[in-house]
Protein backbone atom coordinates (compact mmCIF):
# COMPACT_ATOMS: atom_id res chain seq x y z
CA UNK A 1 0.00 0.00 0.00
CA UNK A 2 2.76 2.41 0.92
CA UNK A 3 4.52 1.51 -2.33
CA UNK A 4 1.51 2.43 -4.34
CA UNK A 5 0.95 5.77 -2.64
CA UNK A 6 4.61 6.63 -3.14
CA UNK A 7 4.28 5.96 -6.83
CA UNK A 8 1.06 7.87 -7.21
CA UNK A 9 1.67 10.82 -4.94
CA UNK A 10 4.00 12.91 -7.12
CA UNK A 11 1.81 12.76 -10.22
CA UNK A 12 -1.36 13.54 -8.29
CA UNK A 13 0.16 16.51 -6.50
CA UNK A 14 1.52 17.75 -9.82
CA UNK A 15 -1.97 17.52 -11.25
CA UNK A 16 -3.32 19.49 -8.30
CA UNK A 17 -1.26 22.60 -8.85
CA UNK A 18 -0.10 24.64 -11.78
CA UNK A 19 3.25 24.34 -13.57
CA UNK A 20 5.99 26.35 -11.90
CA UNK A 21 6.11 28.95 -14.67
CA UNK A 22 2.38 29.60 -14.39
CA UNK A 23 2.65 29.92 -10.62
CA UNK A 24 5.42 32.49 -10.95
CA UNK A 25 3.53 34.40 -13.61
CA UNK A 26 0.30 34.56 -11.57
CA UNK A 27 2.11 35.53 -8.38
CA UNK A 28 4.09 38.19 -10.22
CA UNK A 29 0.96 39.66 -11.82
CA UNK A 30 -0.93 39.74 -8.53
CA UNK A 31 1.95 41.37 -6.66
CA UNK A 32 2.52 43.91 -9.44
CA UNK A 33 -1.16 44.88 -9.32
CA UNK A 34 -1.09 45.28 -5.54
CA UNK A 35 2.20 47.21 -5.65
CA UNK A 36 0.91 49.62 -8.29
CA UNK A 37 -2.47 50.25 -6.65
CA UNK A 38 -1.70 49.93 -2.93
CA UNK A 39 1.98 50.17 -2.03
CA UNK A 40 2.95 53.04 -4.33
CA UNK A 41 0.08 55.33 -3.20
CA UNK A 42 0.77 54.54 0.46
CA UNK A 43 4.45 55.44 0.09
CA UNK A 44 3.59 58.54 -1.94
CA UNK A 45 1.55 60.04 0.94
CA UNK A 46 4.57 60.01 3.26
CA UNK A 47 7.14 61.06 0.67
CA UNK A 48 5.08 64.04 -0.47
CA UNK A 49 4.41 65.09 3.12
CA UNK A 50 8.10 65.15 3.98
CA UNK A 51 9.19 66.75 0.70
CA UNK A 52 10.02 70.09 2.35
CA UNK A 53 11.51 68.57 5.48
CA UNK A 54 10.29 67.72 8.96
CA UNK A 55 9.89 71.40 9.91
CA UNK A 56 7.26 72.13 7.24
CA UNK A 57 5.56 68.83 8.07
CA UNK A 58 5.27 69.63 11.75
CA UNK A 59 4.17 73.23 11.11
CA UNK A 60 1.23 71.98 9.01
CA UNK A 61 0.08 69.69 11.81
CA UNK A 62 0.26 72.06 14.78
CA UNK A 63 -1.36 74.92 12.88
CA UNK A 64 -4.61 76.02 14.71
CA UNK A 65 -7.00 75.06 11.89
CA UNK A 66 -5.44 71.60 11.70
CA UNK A 67 -5.75 71.17 15.46
CA UNK A 68 -9.39 72.28 15.31
CA UNK A 69 -9.98 69.72 12.55
CA UNK A 70 -8.36 66.99 14.65
CA UNK A 71 -10.58 67.94 17.59
CA UNK A 72 -13.77 67.88 15.51
CA UNK A 73 -12.83 64.52 13.98
CA UNK A 74 -12.31 63.10 17.47
CA UNK A 75 -15.67 64.51 18.61
CA UNK A 76 -17.55 63.08 15.62
CA UNK A 77 -15.98 59.64 16.09
CA UNK A 78 -16.31 59.86 19.88
CA UNK A 79 -20.09 60.25 19.61
CA UNK A 80 -20.91 58.08 16.63
CA UNK A 81 -18.82 55.02 17.53
CA UNK A 82 -20.31 54.47 21.05
CA UNK A 83 -23.86 55.02 19.75
CA UNK A 84 -23.39 52.53 16.94
CA UNK A 85 -21.73 50.13 19.37
CA UNK A 86 -24.79 50.14 21.66
CA UNK A 87 -27.05 49.76 18.63
CA UNK A 88 -24.94 46.92 17.20
CA UNK A 89 -25.11 44.99 20.47
CA UNK A 90 -28.86 45.53 20.88
CA UNK A 91 -29.56 44.55 17.27
CA UNK A 92 -27.34 41.45 17.48
CA UNK A 93 -28.99 40.38 20.76
CA UNK A 94 -32.50 40.72 19.32
CA UNK A 95 -31.61 39.06 16.02
CA UNK A 96 -29.46 36.15 17.20
CA UNK A 97 -31.02 35.15 20.53
CA UNK A 98 -34.66 35.17 19.43
CA UNK A 99 -36.76 33.84 16.57
CA UNK A 100 -39.12 36.17 14.77
CA UNK A 101 -40.47 36.75 11.31
CA UNK A 102 -38.81 39.25 8.99
CA UNK A 103 -35.35 38.72 10.43
CA UNK A 104 -33.62 38.68 7.03
CA UNK A 105 -35.44 41.87 6.06
CA UNK A 106 -34.31 43.58 9.26
CA UNK A 107 -30.68 42.62 8.53
CA UNK A 108 -31.03 44.05 5.01
CA UNK A 109 -32.35 47.32 6.48
CA UNK A 110 -29.41 47.51 8.89
CA UNK A 111 -26.99 47.07 5.96
CA UNK A 112 -28.74 49.75 3.93
CA UNK A 113 -26.32 52.65 4.69
CA UNK A 114 -23.52 50.67 3.02
CA UNK A 115 -25.30 50.71 -0.31
CA UNK A 116 -26.09 54.42 -0.25
CA UNK A 117 -23.61 56.82 -1.85
CA UNK A 118 -21.86 59.00 0.77
CA UNK A 119 -23.12 62.10 -1.00
CA UNK A 120 -26.72 60.88 -0.69
CA UNK A 121 -26.09 60.05 2.99
CA UNK A 122 -25.36 63.74 3.53
CA UNK A 123 -28.16 64.91 1.25
CA UNK A 124 -30.91 63.16 3.21
CA UNK A 125 -30.04 65.18 6.33
CA UNK A 126 -29.93 68.43 4.37
CA UNK A 127 -33.41 67.62 3.03
CA UNK A 128 -34.61 66.93 6.58
CA UNK A 129 -32.91 69.66 8.61
CA UNK A 130 -31.68 72.22 6.03
CA UNK A 131 -33.33 75.62 5.64
CA UNK A 132 -35.51 74.37 2.79
CA UNK A 133 -35.98 71.00 4.48
CA UNK A 134 -38.99 69.43 6.23
CA UNK A 135 -37.96 70.56 9.70
CA UNK A 136 -35.93 73.59 8.55
CA UNK A 137 -38.49 76.33 9.35
CA UNK A 138 -39.23 74.89 12.81
CA UNK A 139 -35.51 74.60 13.62
CA UNK A 140 -34.91 78.16 12.47
CA UNK A 141 -37.79 79.46 14.58
CA UNK A 142 -36.17 77.82 17.61
CA UNK A 143 -32.70 78.99 16.60
CA UNK A 144 -31.29 75.50 16.26
CA UNK A 145 -28.77 74.88 13.51
CA UNK A 146 -28.02 71.26 12.64
CA UNK A 147 -26.83 71.54 9.03
CA UNK A 148 -23.54 73.32 8.33
CA UNK A 149 -22.79 72.76 12.01
CA UNK A 150 -21.33 70.06 14.24
CA UNK A 151 -24.60 68.11 14.89
CA UNK A 152 -25.05 67.57 11.15
CA UNK A 153 -21.51 66.23 10.87
CA UNK A 154 -22.12 63.84 13.76
CA UNK A 155 -25.44 62.66 12.25
CA UNK A 156 -23.89 62.02 8.83
CA UNK A 157 -21.01 60.14 10.50
CA UNK A 158 -23.46 57.99 12.48
CA UNK A 159 -25.30 57.14 9.26
CA UNK A 160 -22.26 56.03 7.24
CA UNK A 161 -20.86 53.93 10.11
CA UNK A 162 -24.25 52.57 11.17
CA UNK A 163 -23.91 48.87 10.18
CA UNK A 164 -20.28 48.17 11.20
CA UNK A 165 -20.65 46.72 14.72
CA UNK A 166 -23.98 45.00 14.03
CA UNK A 167 -22.76 43.20 10.93
CA UNK A 168 -19.64 41.89 12.73
CA UNK A 169 -21.60 40.75 15.77
CA UNK A 170 -24.62 39.11 14.12
CA UNK A 171 -22.76 36.19 12.43
CA UNK A 172 -20.52 35.79 15.46
CA UNK A 173 -23.38 35.56 17.99
CA UNK A 174 -25.31 33.38 15.57
CA UNK A 175 -22.45 30.89 15.65
CA UNK A 176 -22.35 30.96 19.46
CA UNK A 177 -25.97 29.86 19.80
CA UNK A 178 -28.02 30.31 22.98
CA UNK A 179 -27.08 27.27 25.10
CA UNK A 180 -24.64 29.11 27.38
CA UNK A 181 -27.09 31.94 28.02
CA UNK A 182 -29.87 29.46 28.78
CA UNK A 183 -27.60 27.65 31.22
CA UNK A 184 -26.88 30.95 32.98
CA UNK A 185 -30.61 31.66 33.13
CA UNK A 186 -31.30 28.29 34.74
CA UNK A 187 -28.59 29.04 37.29
CA UNK A 188 -30.47 32.19 38.26
CA UNK A 189 -28.67 34.98 36.41
CA UNK A 190 -30.70 37.99 35.29
CA UNK A 191 -30.57 39.50 31.81
CA UNK A 192 -27.75 41.97 32.41
CA UNK A 193 -25.68 39.36 34.27
CA UNK A 194 -26.12 36.94 31.36
CA UNK A 195 -25.03 39.60 28.91
CA UNK A 196 -22.01 40.90 30.81
CA UNK A 197 -20.76 37.58 32.23
CA UNK A 198 -21.58 35.14 29.42
CA UNK A 199 -22.33 36.77 26.07
CA UNK A 200 -19.92 39.71 26.09
CA UNK A 201 -16.79 37.72 27.08
CA UNK A 202 -17.57 35.33 24.21
CA UNK A 203 -17.78 38.03 21.56
CA UNK A 204 -15.45 40.69 22.96
CA UNK A 205 -12.92 40.38 20.11
CA UNK A 206 -15.68 40.65 17.56
CA UNK A 207 -16.98 43.77 19.30
CA UNK A 208 -13.51 45.30 19.23
CA UNK A 209 -13.10 44.37 15.57
CA UNK A 210 -16.36 46.12 14.66
CA UNK A 211 -15.45 49.17 16.74
CA UNK A 212 -12.09 49.54 15.02
CA UNK A 213 -13.59 49.39 11.53
CA UNK A 214 -16.38 51.75 12.61
CA UNK A 215 -13.85 54.20 14.01
CA UNK A 216 -11.68 54.17 10.88
CA UNK A 217 -14.65 55.06 8.71
CA UNK A 218 -15.94 57.64 11.21
CA UNK A 219 -12.64 59.49 11.25
CA UNK A 220 -12.08 59.21 7.51
CA UNK A 221 -15.53 59.91 6.09
CA UNK A 222 -15.42 62.59 3.43
CA UNK A 223 -18.42 62.66 1.06
CA UNK A 224 -21.30 62.63 3.54
CA UNK A 225 -19.58 65.03 5.93
CA UNK A 226 -18.63 67.33 3.06
CA UNK A 227 -22.31 67.78 2.12
CA UNK A 228 -23.47 68.77 5.63
CA UNK A 229 -20.37 70.62 6.82
CA UNK A 230 -20.46 74.01 5.16
CA UNK A 231 -16.63 74.01 5.20
CA UNK A 232 -16.14 76.68 7.84
CA UNK A 233 -12.46 76.68 8.75
CA UNK A 234 -11.68 76.01 12.38
CA UNK A 235 -15.38 75.31 13.07
CA UNK A 236 -16.91 72.64 10.85
CA UNK A 237 -13.88 71.12 9.17
CA UNK A 238 -12.95 67.55 9.96
CA UNK A 239 -9.50 66.20 9.08
CA UNK A 240 -10.46 64.90 5.62
CA UNK A 241 -12.17 68.21 4.79
CA UNK A 242 -9.10 70.09 5.99
CA UNK A 243 -6.98 67.97 3.63
CA UNK A 244 -9.27 68.92 0.76
CA UNK A 245 -9.09 72.65 1.50
CA UNK A 246 -5.28 72.64 1.73
CA UNK A 247 -5.03 70.65 -1.49
CA UNK A 248 -7.36 72.99 -3.37
CA UNK A 249 -5.21 75.92 -2.20
CA UNK A 250 -2.20 74.18 -3.80
CA UNK A 251 -0.66 73.84 -0.35
CA UNK A 252 0.39 70.30 -1.20
CA UNK A 253 2.98 69.71 1.53
CA UNK A 254 0.51 70.70 4.24
CA UNK A 255 -2.29 68.67 2.62
CA UNK A 256 -0.14 65.54 2.54
CA UNK A 257 1.21 66.22 6.03
CA UNK A 258 -2.31 66.20 7.46
CA UNK A 259 -3.09 63.22 5.22
CA UNK A 260 -0.30 61.22 6.87
CA UNK A 261 -2.23 61.39 10.15
CA UNK A 262 -5.15 59.69 8.42
CA UNK A 263 -2.83 57.25 6.64
CA UNK A 264 -1.24 56.30 9.98
CA UNK A 265 -4.73 55.72 11.37
CA UNK A 266 -5.41 53.47 8.39
CA UNK A 267 -2.20 51.49 8.98
CA UNK A 268 -2.98 51.08 12.69
CA UNK A 269 -6.47 49.92 11.74
CA UNK A 270 -5.04 47.32 9.35
CA UNK A 271 -2.62 45.97 11.98
CA UNK A 272 -5.36 45.79 14.64
CA UNK A 273 -7.70 44.17 12.15
CA UNK A 274 -5.17 41.51 11.18
CA UNK A 275 -4.44 40.71 14.85
CA UNK A 276 -8.11 40.58 15.84
CA UNK A 277 -9.12 38.49 12.84
CA UNK A 278 -7.20 35.53 14.23
CA UNK A 279 -8.87 35.89 17.64
CA UNK A 280 -12.34 36.23 16.13
CA UNK A 281 -11.83 33.19 13.93
CA UNK A 282 -10.65 31.26 16.98
CA UNK A 283 -13.81 32.27 18.88
CA UNK A 284 -16.07 31.11 16.07
CA UNK A 285 -14.23 27.80 15.76
CA UNK A 286 -14.39 27.00 19.47
CA UNK A 287 -18.05 28.00 19.51
CA UNK A 288 -18.99 25.74 16.64
CA UNK A 289 -17.42 22.76 18.36
CA UNK A 290 -20.13 20.34 19.50
CA UNK A 291 -20.88 20.34 23.22
CA UNK A 292 -18.97 17.77 25.23
CA UNK A 293 -15.93 17.80 22.94
CA UNK A 294 -13.41 19.85 24.84
Amino acid sequence: MSNQSLAVAPTVSAALTEPKAVRWLLTGLALAFLALFLVVPLLAVFVQALEKGVGAYWAAIIEPDALAAIRLTLIAAGISVPLNLVFGIAAAWAITKFKFRGKAFLITLIDLPFSVSPVISGLIYVLLFGLQGWLGPWLKAHDIQLIFAVPGIVLATIFVTFPFVARELIPLMQAQGTEEEEAALVLGANGWQIFFRVTLPNVIWGVLYGVILCNARAMGEFGAVSVVSGHIRGLTNTLPLHVEILYNEYNFVAAFAVATLLALLALLTLVAKALLEKKVRHTVKSASKPIGVE
Binding site: L34, L38, V39, V40, P41, L42, A44, V45, Q48, P118, L213, A216, M219, G220, E221, F222, G223, L239, P240, L241, V243, E244, Y247, F252, A255, F256, A259, L262, A263, L265, A266, L267, T269, L270, V271, K273, A274
Partner: peptide, 22 residues
Amino acid sequence: DALVDLPFALPTAVAGITLAGL
Protein backbone atom coordinates in the same frame (compact mmCIF):
# COMPACT_ATOMS: atom_id res chain seq x y z
CA ASP B 1 -3.16 39.95 2.98
CA ALA B 2 -3.65 42.78 5.49
CA LEU B 3 -2.71 45.38 2.89
CA VAL B 4 -5.59 44.31 0.63
CA ASP B 5 -7.95 46.10 3.03
CA LEU B 6 -6.11 49.42 2.64
CA PRO B 7 -8.82 50.97 0.43
CA PHE B 8 -11.34 50.27 3.23
CA ALA B 9 -9.14 51.82 5.88
CA LEU B 10 -7.58 54.74 4.02
CA PRO B 11 -9.86 57.80 4.06
CA THR B 12 -11.10 58.50 0.54
CA ALA B 13 -9.83 62.08 0.49
CA VAL B 14 -6.29 60.83 1.17
CA ALA B 15 -6.60 58.26 -1.59
CA GLY B 16 -7.94 60.96 -3.88
CA ILE B 17 -5.15 63.49 -3.50
CA THR B 18 -2.50 60.75 -3.61
CA LEU B 19 -3.77 59.18 -6.82
CA ALA B 20 -4.15 62.61 -8.42
CA GLY B 21 -0.54 63.37 -7.50
CA LEU B 22 0.78 60.04 -8.78
